[in-house]
């Protein structure tokens, strides 16, 4: 290597270092000294953030009224079997809803119980990050992860991105498989993705989500996670709760009391 080149490399290296040093002072975001808690554990309290606490102790075996209510209100089709299946909320065993949580020496109750699975309306939703058209987006004012059925191109990238299997695709025309069409909510067309919307259409009218309203046991509690006086926060304060796969940093808005 000749002298000039060596000198050039040395100077460039120094320049880059100096640049980084200057940037870390001027731009606070680039500072080396900044120590931030892991985003999965940070709490931000700005605006409303709708969330749900599921008290699984109160949920009765064999009762599926919350699921039926949701699917009726939202015109979710019922194709028999799993091939074209669409579901917004459903129940599955512990090992499926909470993979990665301890599965050893489970109590009989936990092992045999069924647990709710639905869209977590993540604070850091991977589906929103993946969507190429912003057809799925997080609403800034209340944290709901919503869908625009008219913009969705049906690429299903969001389904690959969701670590909770919460999204469904309309593999065929859903309308013939809807038992009774509810005119208050749109039906979907073939070729788009859909999922739980936390009943944003009901919230707009001051009502609670359909599943929450339907549950007479009080197992599903809905409210503003950012309001310290809300019922959900009270439950979170007084109980040990779980979020599904919290290690992924998605910050789910659905919590479970086991």
């Amino acid at each position: 290597m000749n002298e000039n080149r060596r000198e050039f490399i040395r100077k460039t290296g120094l320049g880059v270092l100096a640049g980084i040093g200057a940037a870390s002072g001027i731009i606070p975001g680039a500072s080396f000294e900044k120590v931030a808690a892991s985003p999965a554990h940070q709490d931000e309290a700005t605006g409303v953030r709708w969330g749900m606490v599921i008290d699984t102790r109160k949920c009765r075996d064999g009762c599926n009224r919350c699921i039926d209510a949701c699917h009726e209100v939202h015109n979710v089709p019922d194709f028999k079997g799993t091939k074209d299946e669409i579901k917004w909320i459903w129940k599955d065993p512990y090992e499926n809803v909470f993979p990665g949580e301890s599965g050893q020496f489970l109590s009989k109750e936990t092992k045999e119980g069924l647990y709710h699975a639905l869209c977590n309306h993540c604070d850091k939703p991977p589906c929103v990050r993946a969507c190429p058209t912003k057809a799925t987006f997080k609403r800034k004012w209340d944290g709901i992860v919503a869908m625009d059925y008219h913009r969705c191109i049906g690429c299903r990238f969001c389904m690959a991105a969701c670590p909770y299997g919460s999204r469904s695709f309309n593999w065929r025309d859903p309308r013939p498989a809807i038992k009774k069409i509810n005119p208050a909510y749109p039906t979907r067309e073939r070729g788009v993705v859909e999922k739980c919307n936390f009943c944003s259409e009901r919230l707009a009218q001051g009502m609670k989500p359909a599943c929450v309203a339907e549950c007479s046991e009080g197992a599903l509690v809905f409210g503003d996670l950012n309001d310290p006086n809300s019922e959900v926060r009270e439950l979170l304060e007084n109980n040990h709760t779980l979020q599904r796969r919290s290690e992924l940093g998605t910050r789910p808005s659905v919590f479970y009391i086991l």
Partner: peptide, 12 residues
Amino acid sequence: GLTLTGMSRDVS
């Protein structure tokens, strides 16, 4: 529709 494929909500 894409129901004419082998795909499903799990293998999407």
